[in-house]
Amino acid sequence: MVRERKIRVLIAKPGLDGHDRGAKVVARALRDAGMEVIYTGLRQTPEMIAQAALQEDVDVVGLSILSGAHMTLVPRVMDLLKQMGLEHVAVFVGGIIPDEDVPALRCLGVKGIYGPGTALSDIVQAIRQEVEGRE
């Protein structure tokens, strides 16, 4: 009867690119690290993502974006989360993000940005630190 609190993570792919392998690999790694991963699939709008984050009461939202539209999509998601009172939800971004966009995303409050070649253990650790550090 151990009541361990599970970390809940929403993994979403906003926008129109159809490359979800990275998102699936990350989802699998988080599962193997003992987290509950809500996987929403391709072509999610920011509204869908924010609603899912609300209903699923997640600690973390992971966005996978390879289309180049991150400077439009990420601010919109952050904005909606704020409007819904979900400021506490940590947002991580993965995919193809040019270096020059990283500071702007950080400024928006994105907690971590991960490109190709990131060790999965780094992502797991960053999420654990973010969620457990808060409690």
């Binding site: 361990e4 599962r31 987290m35 509950e36």
Partner: peptide, 17 residues
């Protein structure tokens, strides 16, 4: 691992909003 992948929302995307 005690973890899980919850994928039922994939088929429910039309309902999300």
């Amino acid at each position: 691992s005690g973890g899980a992948i919850l994928g039922d929302r994939i088929r429910m995307r039309d309902l999300a909003t």
